Amino acid sequence: MKWNSFVAALGLAAPTSALLRFGCSKLTIQRLDPLVNPGQNPSTHLHQIIGGNSFNVTMDPKTHDLAKLSTCTTCQFTEDFSNYWTAVLYFKAKNGTLKRVPQRAQQGMEGTQGGMVVYYMTDALFDTAQKSKVTAFKPGFRMLIGDVNYRSRDEARDFRQLTFICMQNEGTRAPETVEFPKTPCPAGIMANHRFPTCWDGVNLDSPNHRDHVAYPESGTFESGGPCPSTHPVRLPQILLETVWDTKAFNNKADWPADGKQPFVWSSGDGTGYSSHADYVFGWKDDALQKAMDGHTYVTAPMLKTQTIAQQNKCSVPDMVGEDFDSWLPKLPGDIMVN
Rank of each mutant, 00 (worst) to 15 (best):
H64I: 03
V264I: 12
W265K: 07
Q261T: 00
A187Y: 06
D147W: 14
F55G: 06
H193L: 15
Y273W: 14
G51S: 08
I308Q: 01
F249I: 08
H212F: 03
K290V: 13
T128E: 11
K133M: 03
V134W: 00
P42Q: 08
V36C: 05
C72V: 13
P186M: 11
P317V: 05
F159Q: 01
V316I: 12
T299N: 10
M143Y: 06
R160F: 10
K2Y: 05
T28E: 09
Y90T: 04
M109F: 12
Q310L: 07
G272K: 13
N4H: 10
Y297G: 01
S206Q: 12
Q40A: 07
N169R: 05
S25C: 13
P15A: 04
F324M: 04
Y279C: 01
M121Q: 14
R210G: 03
T122N: 14
T63A: 03
K330M: 13
K133N: 06
V117Q: 03
M336Y: 07
S315V: 11
C227Q: 05
P317M: 06
L331G: 15
W244K: 01
Q76L: 15
Y297K: 01
W327I: 00
T296F: 15
F6P: 05
K260G: 03
S43A: 14
D127F: 13
T177L: 06
D33F: 11
S132R: 14
M59Q: 10
H193R: 11
A291C: 13
P139F: 04
L35K: 12
G39I: 10
L331W: 15
G11Q: 09
R157A: 13
L288G: 03
V320K: 11
V7A: 10
V7G: 03
L35G: 06
Q261S: 00
P216L: 00
G11A: 09
P196K: 08
T73E: 12
N53D: 15
F159N: 01
Q311P: 04
G115I: 04
V148N: 02
P207K: 14
V243A: 05
S218G: 05
P329G: 07
R31S: 02
S229P: 01
Q237H: 01
M336G: 08
K92T: 09
F81G: 02
P34G: 08
L89S: 02
G201E: 09
D200M: 06
D33S: 10
D147K: 11
L328C: 04
D65K: 14
A13Y: 00
H231V: 02
T122S: 12
L98H: 10
G224E: 15
G114R: 11
Q237E: 02
R100Q: 09
N41P: 07
D65C: 11
D127Y: 13
A257K: 09
A187G: 00
S5W: 09
H209N: 07
G39H: 09
F81K: 06
S5H: 12
E170C: 00
E322I: 11
Q113C: 06
Q289N: 05
I165A: 01
D80A: 04
D200Q: 09
A156Y: 11
Q168Y: 09
A8I: 07
